Amino acid sequence: MPATITFDTLTDAHLDGALRLSQAVSWPHRREDWHLFLRLSRGVVALAGGKVVGTAQATPFGDVAMVNMIIVDAQMRSRGLGRQLMTRAMAGVDVPEWRLTATVEGLPLYEKLGFVATGSVLQHQGVPVRQAVPDGVDWAGDTDLAAIQVLDQQATGADRSSLIARLMHEARLVVIRKGPDLAGYACLRRFGRGDLVGPVVAEDSAMAQRLISFLMARSTAGFLRVDTTEEAGLAPWLMGQGLAAAGGGVSMRRGAATVPATSVQCFALAAQALG
């Protein structure tokens, strides 16, 4: 007899079960990574006999929201559980635009729910070659927080102030200044197997490379990951720095597109779950 499925709000009490699900599909997320996402999001969990068998989260960023961490236990698939999880997670967040990063396996479901492909996410990782520390890059301070939040929204069209505030205190941020203003910023934090560089927001690819090179030189984890996009054009340079291509995903959107400002661009994601 099939197990009865119940749904509940995803809380810290479910994170061990959620971590088991992500490990089963070879995602590198640590429990700490799940915890960060959960603090920014509204999550839904599917339970069978008290066991976590599915998850989905919706992360609101102003007029944009990300739907993410959509995982269904292998033994519970082909029952429409993924669709139910997504629908329940998204129901609690009212925004004009939804975004997600899709796996190949998830594409059919997301297309049925009205999402359309908008680009490619490219994952690069490995042990970077030794870097010279570039000039003109400074560690960010608390007084830079508001300017970084504005710069990020100009690049992404999403109000990720809550994410940037957490990264300011839980990660390490660097900036490039133009007089009294900020022209670019980047973040280095622990994630998965080592360190992750992202977000990276800059005026052009040369500036993005300076920011990333600085953080490569400062990373002590050995293993480094950068999630970029095909549109950003950084992939050849990242491979030249020792970060091999390691798959990726498909950027998707549902609803009216939010048009970012054009003075800066997002060259690397905060995470595939967060854009």
Score class of each variant (00 low, 15 high):
V93A: 06
F37H: 05
V201Q: 09
R210L: 00
D16I: 06
L122K: 10
G126Q: 04
Q272E: 07
Y110T: 03
G194H: 05
I176F: 04
P134H: 06
Q23R: 15
V127S: 07
R218P: 04
Q209A: 04
G184K: 04
A74M: 02
T55M: 07
T6K: 09
Y185C: 06
T9E: 09
M90S: 03
A206T: 14
S251C: 13
V95W: 09
V45R: 01
C187N: 11
A232E: 13
T103L: 07
A24Y: 01
C187S: 12
M69R: 07
E203Q: 12
E32C: 05
R190K: 14
I148T: 10
A147W: 01
R225A: 14
P199I: 07
H14F: 05
G242Q: 07
D73T: 01
T11C: 03
M239V: 15
A245K: 10
L173D: 04
M90R: 10
D227A: 14
D181W: 00
A65Q: 07
V150L: 15
L269H: 08
L113K: 10
E203P: 05
V259T: 15
V226R: 01
K178N: 00
R210I: 00
A171N: 11
D8I: 03
F223N: 08
V197Q: 08
A74Y: 03
P96Q: 02
P60R: 05
R166D: 15
P96W: 03
Q265V: 02
W34L: 15
S78W: 11
R20S: 11
L100H: 06
L145Q: 14
L15A: 04
A13R: 12
I176A: 14
G114Q: 01
L47P: 14
L269T: 00
A132I: 03
A18V: 04
P108M: 07
G17D: 08
N68F: 03
